[in-house]
């Protein structure tokens, strides 16, 4: 790579927790302070900020205005992304690659415990053809899962085992039999197959100048993609948007064979069938460890998810010298309409 480096210099995380009693401002403040402390810097070292938030979840328009002070954006350049935090991270990395800034703070937050998420997400659907039918994100996931399960008699059992495996060894541990005994929420998806919705905030410091000497992981490729909104305009059995996003990232990172390229993958998958879609579209092989901490199956915060996967990837690389390359993923919209990935490579040992 000839462009200047972008390091994941530091991370701060709040949650996921079922219901955080604090205000969004207080949650974000703790995440931001955690990230700055992880690098050992103050707001004075931050050149620009990119925030990710979704108005309909926060119940106000321009939901970034509520956190302007606590992200340190008063009288500084701030950009706001109304999508998953991974898209915000890509925006920040591009700002650094452009030469505009050296160090950018990325922050994402959501507090879905404030209002019924499923109802709210109806507002995110097409208002003419879909909202009158009450189509929401769960409906779309059910439609996609059913399309995959058709002609695949073992799908339900396999998905139950996958969701169980992800939660093994965590407080949310549950057997495949228990998952299969849980009620169906959108056939063929069962309640315990779904990632639990929780509150959270995440902050990450990206920098061209900080982190190099501490061996922090480096961003070597990014890609994102937006598929058509309507499921009928997509191929139901494949995340073609993720495939395109990955190919863009692989091209930048010089990866020819993704099947053997990654030690770790941290996908943003809300259901087991989505993880199968992720593995297929990203083209990763059996040697890649997927979601060693359980991924979103142990707690999912919308908007924050992708940034939390980026933090999880960076953390794993800092702790395990054998983890040399990772693929972090964020997704948003109905049935993975929006897709974004970042490739991380370990810093100098």
């Amino acid at each position: 790579m000839t462009q200047r480096p972008v390091f994941i210099a530091g991370c701060g995380q709040v949650g996921p927790v079922a219901e955080d009693p604090r205000s969004i401002v207080e949650m974000v403040l703790e995440a931001v302070e955690g990230a700055l402390e992880d690098v050992g810097i103050t707001h004075q070292d931050i050149d620009a900020i990119v925030t990710a938030s979704v108005d309909i979840l926060d119940g106000l328009t321009a939901s970034n205005i509520a956190v302007t002070e606590v992200v340190g954006a008063v009288m500084k350049p701030e950009a706001r992304i109304a999508a998953d935090g991974m898209a915000a991270a890509i925006h920040g990395a591009c700002q650094i690659w452009s030469g505009a800034y050296d160090t950018v703070l990325i922050v994402a937050h959501a507090k879905p415990s404030m209002a019924p998420y499923q109802d709210l997400m109806q507002w995110a659907m097409d208002p003419i053809y879909l909202q009158p039918l009450g189509v929401d994100f769960l409906t779309c996931a059910g439609l996609q899962a059913q399309a995959l399960a058709a002609g695949d008699a073992g799908a339900e059992q396999r998905w139950a085992e996958l969701a169980s495996a992800r939660r093994a060894g965590t407080p949310a541990a549950i057997s495949a039999d228990e998952i299969l005994a849980s009620p169906i929420v959108a056939s063929p998806l069962r309640a315990e197959m779904c990632a639990p919705m929780e509150d959270g905030a995440s902050a990450i410091v990206l920098s061209a100048v900080l982190g190099k000497h501490d061996g922090r992981p480096q961003v070597t490729g990014v890609g994102h993609d937006l598929a058509p909104h309507d499921l009928g305009d997509r191929e139901p059995g494949i995340w073609r948007g993720l495939e395109r996003a990955c190919n863009r990232a692989y091209s930048v990172a010089g990866i020819d064979n993704p099947a053997s390229a990654f030690d770790l993958a941290e996908p943003s998958c809300l259901f087991p069938h989505e993880e199968e879609l992720f593995v297929a579209a990203a083209g990763i092989g059996n040697a890649t460890v997927v979601s060693p901490g359980g991924g979103l199956f142990v707690g999912h915060t919308p908007v924050v998810a992708g940034l939390s996967r980026l933090a999880a990837s960076a953390s794993a690389m800092r702790q395990d010298a054998g983890c040399r390359r990772a693929l972090a993923h964020g997704a948003w919209g109905p049935a993975g309409q929006g897709q974004a990935v970042m490739i991380l490579e370990a810093g100098a040992p």
């Binding site: 119940g59 507090k111 415990s113 209002a115 009158p132």
Partner: peptide, 19 residues
């Protein structure tokens, strides 16, 4: 014209300062 009506409330945590 497609008319959609939905009642929606958000529960804001006041935070320590506002409290």
């Amino acid at each position: 014209t497609v008319t959609i009506e939905m009642e929606q409330a958000w529960r804001y945590a006041s935070g320590t300062a506002m409290e």
